[in-house]
């Protein structure tokens, strides 16, 4: 192990990590918003929009992010839509993640028995009130483990950003290996930096899951 090389590489990895985190979290935020909207459309059975949403979800769940990014980055400029690599990265991740988040929220909503809404309505609540005070809080808390799993999944997926010339961790590792051929050092740093990015989320995920599984409400 060449420690001097490792130390000299650190700043580049740090920059790459910051870039990945920035684009990644923007994408995840976008995914969250898209997911909530799509789940609401499907749950409320809004005609037409519901079919479009369903098609979008299936399309993005059944194609790889890499292909989606290639399409956004290389194909769209040919029809006059040109976007920066960074925007492209966040948008691609957001579209992919939105489809997954939508499924998570939807199943969270579906898991709440209809009689919960009925018993709220039998107390005189409107459908909206029943949704807001009774269904939504339960759905959100039951979706949390799934959401965190999606976050981990999406942060992992950022590893393909280098293909649209974003200087992320993979790009940096590949670049440095190409220049100095210190493969082991570069790969070790790559693993370490991915751990720095993902381990906290993963630990949070298992903590939340354990809490929800063993405690639910009132324990």
């Amino acid at each position: 192990m060449d420690w001097d090389a490792i130390i000299s590489y650190l700043p580049r990895y740090k920059d790459a990590l910051l870039l990945t985190v920035k684009i990644g979290w923007l994408g995840i935020l976008l995914a969250f918003i898209i997911g909530v909207l799509c789940a609401a459309v499907i749950h409320q059975k809004i005609p037409v929009l519901r079919q479009i949403t369903g098609f979008y979800i299936e399309l993005f769940r059944n194609t790889p992010l890499l292909v989606q990014l290639f399409f956004l980055y290389f194909a769209l400029p040919k029809v006059g839509v040109r976007v920066s690599p960074q925007f492209c990265g966040s948008l691609g991740l957001g579209l992919l993640g939105g489809a997954y988040m939508a499924e998570t929220f939807r199943s969270g909503l579906e898991n709440i028995a209809p009689i919960q809404s009925e018993s709220a309505q039998s107390l005189g609540m409107s459908k909206m009130q029943a949704f807001r005070y009774v269904i939504l809080p339960q759905a959100v808390s039951s979706s949390v483990p799934g959401l965190l799993a999606n976050v981990i999944f999406l942060l992992k997926e950022t590893s393909v950003f280098s293909t649209i010339s974003l200087m992320d961790l993979m790009f940096t590792a590949k670049d440095l290996i190409g220049m100095y051929a210190k493969t082991i050092e570069c790969l070790t740093l790559l693993v370490v930096f991915y751990l720095i990015m993902l381990l906290p989320v993963s630990i949070l995920g298992s903590l939340v899951e354990r809490r929800l599984r063993h405690a639910e409400f009132g324990n």
Partner: peptide
């Protein structure tokens, strides 16, 4: 497996 990207 859970946290390392397959590409890595």
């Amino acid at each position: 497996v859970r946290i390392m990207p397959q590409l890595v």
